[in-house]
Amino acid sequence: MTSPPIKTVITIDDEKIDQLLYKRIMERSGLIETVIPFRMAQDALDFLALEDRVTVDAVFVDINMPRMNGFEFLDIAAERFGSDFAKCVVVMLTTSLDPEDQARAEASETINKFLRKPLSIEDLQEVAQLVLNPT
């Protein structure tokens, strides 16, 4: 069996069950080797700041979360980690139906993809394409 095209992704979502379901679908897709979940954006920032951490290929981030929302997280991450963070594919994965959120995500240079929950295998295939063929 060939190894999955994507080595490591992090998921940031306060919903425990959603995290559990992401992990299952990501494992089932065979596209992703390791999933590291965070339920608070601050914890993800702390992880990204570690010097000896693994390379992150993609970030899946929710918008509405306690304390720090997805947009705030991305702003801080882009500022703090710069080009290093710019290398990974950023996917906004949300239940938000607010067209302003979508417009803001589309206008953002940090965000590569805006997806609505629930996450599907097809979504993951598209993300895999972005990871393998960065534009």
Binding site: D14, E15, K16, R39, M40, N64, P66, R67
Partner: peptide
Amino acid sequence: QDQTKVFDMFTRLHLPD
């Protein structure tokens, strides 16, 4: 730092569980 936003719609400061 959270006191101004607690009155905003759908603001939560804690994990739901």
